[in-house]
């Protein structure tokens, strides 16, 4: 069995993110980056499936040289191989372009299971896993909170906005990871040392040109309707003269 995991490099969830001076990007050079947390769940799940059932595991990402740091972390956790599809400004890609890249690599790798996060926390997009499944004709189970491998098929517990469900799907399948799927391990020293020695395969790829551009990034608008009033008299005055309910 072969498992392909797609991960994306994203700003640390705790980072203070501000628009850059030209308003087209964020303060990228000032903040730490991590593996997208939902993708890290996918990495952990792939390693657990490998440990439980035996499988070759491959991690894939798209981006510049910096992304190798995140691929090496996945290798240190226990993934066997890593592939980087090079792109200088991967954060500006539309999810359809990301999905295309993963699908093209998957056509070469022919995995039985493709794992990725349900959501990328940078551009808040959920589309990559369904895109891959459709593009490859794979089965799809999203929002997975538990995965069991049952001889040629998988049984997945999933959590959606409607409720909890148990799905079954034959292989090959794309699975998107939801919070609660597992607790990602910390790489140990041996893993870190071995990951340093592993080669990361680099690929160049022509991707479809789509009409998609982020024109500006701005701080969120101030919240409306939150105002601190200092005295009962002030509250009465606001209710009488502004809200006009007294």
């Amino acid at each position: 069995m072969k498992i392909l995991v797609f991960i994306k490099r994203v700003p640390d969830t705790a980072a203070i993110i501000k628009p850059s001076q030209d308003g087209k990007d964020i303060n990228r050079s000032e903040i730490p980056f991590i593996i997208n947390p939902y993708d890290e769940l996918a990495v952990e799940e792939a390693i657990r499936l490998k440990e439980g059932k035996g499988a070759e595991t491959v991690v894939l990402s798209v981006g510049n040289e910096d992304v190798k740091e995140n691929l090496r972390r996945a290798l240190a956790m226990g993934i066997d191989r890593a592939i980087l599809v090079k792109h200088p400004s991967y954060w500006n890609l539309n999810p359809a372009q990301i999905g295309y890249i993963v699908s093209e690599v998957a056509k070469r790798e022919k995995p039985d299971i493709i794992l990725t996060g349900k959501l990328s926390i940078d551009d808040y997009t959920y589309s990559v896993a369904p895109y891959i499944a459709e593009a490859l004709g794979y089965n799809l189970v999203t929002y997975a909170t538990k995965v069991e491998y049952l001889d040629g098929k998988i049984r997945v517990e999933r959590e959606t906005d409607l409720g909890s469900e148990v799905w079954e799907a034959p292989l090959p399948v794309v699975i998107s990871a939801e919070r609660g799927l597992n607790e990602p391990r910390l790489p140990n020293m041996r893993g870190i040392m071995m990951a340093k020695k592993k080669e990361i395969e680099e690929l160049e790829m022509d991707i479809p040109n789509l009409s998609y551009s982020v024109e500006s990034l701005t701080p969120p608008p101030p919240r409306k309707g939150v105002r601190f009033l200092n005295s009962a008299d002030e509250i009465i005055e606001v209710l009488r003269n502004e809200v006009k309910i007294l």
Binding site: A96, G99, Y126, S127, Y131, A133, T142, T160, P208
Partner: peptide, 23 residues
């Protein structure tokens, strides 16, 4: 932009070679 709508979006994007914007 429900759990299911987002799933449809990715699939439609691939099937129709269309750009997509969630949420």
């Amino acid at each position: 932009s429900t759990s299911f709508g987002k799933e449809l979006g990715g699939r439609l994007s691939a099937k129709l070679s269309a750009p997509i914007l969630d949420d």
